[in-house]
Nucleic acid binder design. Structure first.
Lengths: 346, 346
DNA sequence: CCGCCGGTTTAGATCGATCTAAGGTCCATA
DNA sequence: TATGGACCTTAGATCGATCTAAACCGGCGG
């Protein structure tokens, strides 16, 4: 509508409240309130009269005021470092599915992996008395960044990135399983003799778990480990591309690589000129199985944990944390390998 | 709405309010309130005493209660059909940048392109008395789906998808410009003789504007139009891949194609076996310039509108709608072409 | 000694809803 | 004619903050 400095006044004067509906019918606020909440305590005649009058006056139920009174809130916050990451976006679908179904209102806040924004957003959610929070902590988060939220009592679930010393429920993928699956595929199926774990921020907790299990399985199978190619690295296609190009200039690559993510695999595949006749022989595996990986040239093999189901699990854990009855699994789904062309399976 | 949950006990007993801080110091609520809002009306001594006591008692300011009293709210909702679309995700960054800076709290809600969810979410935001909304309408939206939000007076900006008959501010990319740019590049630069506009949902308003301008420019330049390849189509890589494969089986492709999005271009490139020796000669152009397009094999040429800046513009338009002072441009940035290998530029 | 002044502080109403405990009808039963 | 109960409705307190208008206080000029 129109806007002015007077907008406040106008709105205040014009805004229709419960009491207006009540007065206009000669009823009390309480009765109108009961109607708005579908209580069985009010007669059918009154109910329809109230609904009609509310509609006529343009009354809009004020959920915020109700929340204040009931000490209850339907807002659940998803606090994520990177909304653009499709894996993360799919996880949010699962959370929304589980929580939305029973009346919660799920919204996503983007920290852009910045600590200051993360702090501000969590603070806001506490201040708004949100019902709960699911968060993938920013990379540089430490335990004391969650002391505040712990103290506030706001039900919170940590997702994907584990932080030592934080006493909050954690939901993540089976990193060790991913590492073992990768090692097995590269060595047992493709007979690789020298492998590496490529990319991933050194601070990212998934990297640690995966790489450790991967390396162990590689050693057990008697294959070689390329430490140079396994140095940590920002997990973007671009960074991976540049690093791989540099390393290739210095010498031949390992013959099998497990990449920290599909995005990293894209960069590596480009640097290796995979899919062209002059490509070096190297089996490439990604992690996440983004939709686009099947379309890539060559199609990218990838290890996937069903992200939507992971989100559902997360939602259920949060429900439990809020003290509500929960049905369905609370264990993350196991990783699976989707073998395509980049490792030589097709 | 929700059913009763019984979390009251613990929280009610433990919760610290403003009055607790006040009592504990022998002050009034009003004074504590002034301190919490950094008012200059309180003495320095009182201020620090209050802050210390608040900290000691673990007091947490209740933003929701304050919002009720002041009839003001800091929550701005971004209502989007597809959080997973990287273009959309980047737009959200721009909105957040402009609004976050002046104290608004931006959160994203995902409609998954479903009308019922969109209705429910918008309803929720109105009910929560949000400060404003930026929304990309669901594909099947009609004017009357926005009648409610219009009547409520909630400041709203429509993004990217235009809907006839809705009297709300709209921010979108220059679709006609994109179409002309594509035509010019394919025909003037690459000498294409027969072109098409590939993919895009028939209901998507951007498709209409782009294709119309594209087709017009193509006709003006004297090139041919391939109507079969220009049929509408769901805008995913997968759907594009299947459709292109079908059409290729029936006959040769046009020699120049403007794709509805980069995702569509990925599918088409795969079907054409672009980047391999046996590829049909066809210049492919995407739209959006996703980060991954430069990594693709071959790298995908794309027409881009800076999504972050588009988001900023959107934020500014919303501010104006809310009656706040605004600085900076309120016109979307012009599209640019990023020429790479898929059209033959490299 | 009084009135006034600027700097602080406060009591009480208010935002828009819910909740509790009590109050009215109406009718069947004692 | 009471009495009790089922059914519906309501007054007033309450949630946790802000706002308005008034009060307090030490000092200063008249």
């Amino acid at each position: 509508m129109q806007d002015d400095l007077e907008q406040g006044d106008r709105a205040r004067a014009r805004r229709v409240r419960m009491i207006d509906v009540a007065n206009s019918l000669g009823l009390s606020r309480a009765t109108v309130s009961l109607v708005m909440r579908n209580s069985p305590l009010v007669s059918a005649a009154t109910r329809s009269a109230v609904l009609a009058e509310a509609e006529r006056l343009g009354y809009i139920y004020n959920q915020a005021a109700a929340n204040l009174r009931t000490q209850r809130n339907d807002l659940v916050g998803l606090v994520m470092p990177d909304v653009m990451n499709p894996f993360v976006a799919e996880v949010s679908l699962g959370v929304q599915e589980v929580l939305g179904e029973i009346g919660f209102f799920v919204m996503i806040a983007n920290t852009v992996d910045r600590l200051d924004l993360q702090r501000q957003i969590l603070q806001s959610l506490v201040g708004h008395r949100a019902a709960g929070v699911v968060t993938i902590p920013a990379l540089t988060s430490a335990a004391d960044h969650f002391a505040g939220i712990r103290r506030s009592g706001l039900p919170t679930v940590l997702l994907l990135r584990h932080i030592d010393g934080v006493d909050l429920p954690f939901v993540g993928t089976d990193e060790a399983g991913i590492g073992r699956l990768g090692a097995e595929h590269l060595i047992a199926v493709h007979g690789c003799r020298r492998v590496a774990y490529f990319g991933g921020d050194p601070l990212a907790s998934p990297r640690v778990g995966r790489m450790e299990a991967f390396r162990e399985a590689v050693a057990e199978a008697g294959a070689g480990w390329d430490a140079t190619w396994s140095e940590p690295l920002e997990a973007t296609a671009d960074a991976a591309h540049r690093r791989a190009a540099d390393l290739l200039a210095a010498g031949p690559p390992p013959d099998g690589v497990l990449c920290h993510s599909d995005n990293v695999a894209y960069g590596l595949a480009k640097a290796l000129r995979l899919g062209t006749p002059d490509a070096a022989p190297c089996a490439v595996l990604g992690i996440d199985d983004l939709h686009q990986s099947a379309m890539w040239n060559p199609s990218i093999s990838s290890i996937a944990t069903d992200p939507v189901e992971l989100g559902r699990v997360c939602g259920r854990v949060l429900l439990a944390e809020m003290g509500m009855p929960v049905e369905g699994s609370r264990t993350p789904p196991p990783p699976e390998i989707h073998a395509r062309a980049s490792c030589g399976c097709r």
